[in-house]
């Protein structure tokens, strides 16, 4: 009886809340990058290239930092630069779940399943406010991009 009560109490205490806000993250060399987090040099390291892209009327919106195998793009929110895109440049790195450029369509399905949204060649997997955008051409992955909703 006590056990049941205890379980009931635990259930009431912890249970039934809204699921934690899950997002996609990218782990490289034991470092995990979270989409939507603030970009800092300390965490992301020295970049090998940097560019700012303004758009029609709004200046300096996107900042892109280039690293050896990927690019990180930030977007200002309340004066802080938040990471909203991570784009793979080559097949030297793979996603946290193990997908890399030049892998096959079947690799993608075995790692991410069939719960995608498809638009042309673009397969989008969504987790919370983050998307994993994968382009598949002729059965092979040709583009991998993590994106956070703006």
């Amino acid at each position: 009886m006590k056990k049941i009560l205890l379980i009931l109490c635990l259930f009431l205490l912890v249970g039934c809340g809204k699921a934690a806000n899950k997002v996609y993250s990218l782990t490289l060399n034991n470092k995990t990058f979270y989409l939507g987090e603030e970009y800092t040099k300390e965490k992301y390291g020295e970049s090998i290239g940097y560019s700012e892209v303004s758009s029609c009327a709004f200046e300096g919106l996107d900042k892109t930092y280039k690293y050896d195998h990927y690019e990180v793009t930030t977007y200002p929110v309340d004066g802080k630069d938040k990471v909203y895109l991570i784009y793979f440049l080559d097949d030297e790195i793979s996603t946290t779940e193990g997908l890399k450029l030049s892998d096959s369509y079947n690799d993608m399905i075995s790692k991410y399943g069939e719960k995608y949204k498809k638009e042309g060649n673009l397969y989008t997997y969504t987790l919370g406010k983050t998307n994993l955008n994968i382009i598949v051409e002729n059965g092979f992955v040709t583009s991998i991009e993590y994106a956070h909703e703006i």
Binding site: S51, V53, K66, Y87, G120, L122, I135
Partner: peptide, 12 residues
């Protein structure tokens, strides 16, 4: 001009 992000592959 300095640099721009790498050219992206597009789904179409």
């Amino acid at each position: 001009y300095t640099s721009f992000p790498e050219q992206r592959r597009l789904p179409s």
